[in-house]
């Protein structure tokens, strides 16, 4: 790995929606590195999907937390392998996130844009594939359905 950033898997899982205030803080931190020429920020929001049972009000996220932390570390390590990642931040929600809330943040800083896009996408797909997190879409107090990743 050519990257020199420090990734803290223990800090990824956050209770409730990801605070939008994390975004400017991360951008300032990336800018402060001096070497970052390209930042890619991905944010996943909970959609108010309209289903046969009604409109999704929010998603309740649960996880096997120790396994999830280990899987986040492996996903980031693999995605960054061979790339010159200057800095990186990943947050994922646990608990309830209302529609419109941010449930996932992936921020990657590299010297050039191609690597930033590639690493960001690899982390996103790795999370969906390898991290034991489950989302239950809440329709109303009596109706819910388990989210299925596509």
């Amino acid at each position: 790995m050519k990257s020199g950033f420090a990734f803290h898997a223990d800090a990824v899982l956050t209770e409730g929606p990801v605070d939008p205030g994390v975004v400017p803080a991360v951008v300032r931190r990336f800018a402060g590195t001096g070497g970052a020429g390209a930042d890619v920020l991905f944010m996943g929001h909970v959609r108010a999907d309209v289903t046969e049972a009604g409109t999704v009000r929010g998603i309740e996220y649960t996880a096997h937390e120790p396994m999830a932390r280990a899987a986040f570390a492996a996903v980031v390590r693999d995605a960054a392998a061979g790339a010159e990642v200057i800095d990186l931040e990943v947050r994922h929600s646990l608990g309830y996130v209302p529609a419109g809330g941010i449930s996932l943040l992936i921020a990657v800083a590299t010297a050039h844009r191609d690597e930033a896009y590639r690493v960001s996408r690899a982390i996103l797909e790795g999370i969906k594939r390898d991290v034991p997190i489950y989302g239950r879409e809440i329709i109303d107090e009596e109706t819910s359905r388990w989210k299925v990743n596509r």
Partner: peptide
């Protein structure tokens, strides 16, 4: 022993 169905994070 943990029983883990397909993941749905993200």
């Amino acid at each position: 022993i943990a029983l883990l169905p397909p993941f749905s994070g993200g």
